[in-house]
Design a protein around this nucleic acid. Structure first.
Length: 453
RNA sequence: GUGAUUGUAGCUCAGCUGGUUAGAGCGCUGGUUUGUGGCACCAGAGGUCGCCGGUUCGAACCCGGUCUUUCACCCCA
């Protein structure tokens, strides 16, 4: 007999965990719906051709590939083994597990372009898989909760993303967090302004580490990536900048005066803030972080990332605007913006902060207990009465000692036990015991219904 | 993918420089209590020491491999 085990980076969820996850998921779902998003689902597996090349070389490596059915090796010839893993992969695998929800969504939009009404707002809550090395807050199977709007470049969408994040976090009683926001165009503009036009990619990657490794190390890395010393020097005042929102915007307008793209980015950000104001909203939790750079190559406008403060988990939400995500699937010119909550990380954060309410992990409200066959029969007759009245009721299915039945209720967190003994049978009552207080009263059926309603 | 790290009862962990029958707390089962859970007391069950191989008279302990855990890098929710 073998010991059962789970694949690396995957987890089971017990009743308590599921109750908590459902709480998070329902909160997110309800918020997406409140803002007019419609739910879709896509298959766990996609054609490898849909997935590969969308996440960079790193991403391709992290894709879980599915071996072809049947004799998967039938097309493999001896010489293929010498041609490297990529060539071999084509012959043995044509499907893979989805890596995120955005690319499958792009595929969905392209395939259904004639049926969809644009702007199309969809949300999608499904697991994704990455062949990553697991770490804290990092799993090989995890859920993403995506909300995206495609078919409009209105910055109202960006403003609403901020509102949705705030609403969800408020419902989860998370208070100490930052919604970092930036704009890819600003980063492009910075690259132009320091004389390294077109190199915002490497610039982002290096700058993104500023918090972690410090300015000196970032300078080294930039030099390694072929940035001129004079260019890097021009970056210094930006890195050193500590100012409020208005100050940052003013600084950038000057810093980026030579870059139309950069100025457009600043303008877009200001408009998002302006829209929030017109909505009667403030900028609570919003943090314009000039150095925020997200690696994903398809972002072209706003960039978001949400970090809960004073916890060991990384970002719990992120997203941005992409102007041409559907382009690779043959539908150019469709702008979209979206973001995603990481439920598993939100769970870890709430757990670490002790913010889960001390809820009972059982939804059962009443357990019917009995001493003998007569009581069992009596209780069986009552079950439906309680359930029809909407009271979540169960009966201990095997005739065991009543201590055992009480113990069961106690462990399962059932708040009330209804004792059905000879006295109760003869008077047509049930003795209802409140497990928390220990009080017990003999009640008629209507009295029980009133007490537990 | 690179470099570390972890694994002993259901859980959290002891276990000395390799040396008889591997321990504790909690949990579990039964009892003290045949109309009552939590508390207390008593008794009991439960371990191929992650797995495979090696060194040794002898391995939980040393060595190699493998899986798993955690962490850093990379990247990311």
């Amino acid at each position: 007999m073998q010991k059962p085990s789970l694949p690396k980076g995957t987890r089971d969820f017990g009743p308590l965990q599921m109750a908590r996850r459902t709480f998070i998921l329902d909160t997110i779902k309800e918020t997406f719906q409140l803002f007019g998003y419609q739910q879709i689902e896509t298959p766990a597996m996609e054609n490898l051709s849909t997935l590969t090349g969308k996440y960079g070389d790193e991403g391709d490596q992290l894709l879980f590939k599915i071996l072809n059915s049947g004799d998967f090796a039938k097309d493999v010839k001896a010489e293929d083994l010498g041609n490297g893993p990529a060539a071999l992969l084509n012959k043995v695998s044509e499907k893979g597990l989805r890596y995120d929800l955005t690319v499958p969504f792009a595929r969905y939009v392209v395939m259904n372009r004639n049926e969809l009404t644009f702007p199309f707002k969809r949300y999608q809550i499904q697991p994704v898989w990455r062949a990553d090395r697991p770490q804290k807050g990092r799993y090989r199977e995890f859920y993403q909760c995506d909300a995206d709007v495609v078919g409009t470049d209105s910055l109202v969408c960006e403003a609403e993303i901020i509102l949705m994040i705030r609403r969800v976090f408020a419902k989860l009683s998370l208070q100490d967090y930052n919604i970092k926001i930036n704009n890819r165009k600003i980063l492009t503009g910075i690259a132009e302004a320091i004389g390294e036009a077109g190199k915002e990619g490497p610039l982002c990657v290096a700058i993104d580490k500023l918090d972690k490794i410090g300015w000196e190390k970032v300078k080294e890395e930039l030099a390694q990536r072929g940035f001129e010393a004079s260019s890097v020097a021009k970056l210094a005042p930006l890195v050193a900048l500590e100012s409020d929102l208005a100050g940052k915007l003013e600084f950038l307008k000057d810093f980026l005066k030579s870059s139309d793209t950069g100025l457009k980015g600043v303008e877009e950000l200001e408009e998002v803030f302006g829209i929030l104001e017109k909505m009667g909203q403030d900028l609570a939790h919003v943090d314009f972080d000039i150095m925020l750079a997200r690696g994903l190559s398809y972002y072209t406008g706003a960039i978001f990332e949400v970090k809960v403060n004073h916890v060991s988990i990384g970002s719990v939400s992120g997203g941005g605007r992409y102007d041409n995500l559907t382009g690779v699937f043959g539908l150019p010119g469709v702008s979209g913006v979206g973001f995603s909550f990481g439920v598993d990380r939100l769970y870890d954060v709430l757990d670490e902060l002790g913010l889960f309410p001390a809820e009972s992990h059982s939804s059962t409200r009443l357990l019917l207990a009995y001493f003998d066959q007569a009581g069992f029969d009596y209780a069986l007759g009552l079950l439906n009465e309680f359930r029809n009245a909407g009271i979540k009721t169960e009966i201990y299915p095997n005739p065991v000692k009543i201590q055992k039945q009480f113990d069961f209720a106690n462990k399962k967190g059932v708040p009330f036990v209804g004792v059905c003994g000879s006295e109760e049978i003869s008077t047509g009552t049930v003795s209802v015991k409140n497990m928390a207080t220990g009080e017990q009263d003999k009640m008629t059926l209507p009295e029980v219904l009133a007490a537990l309603a």
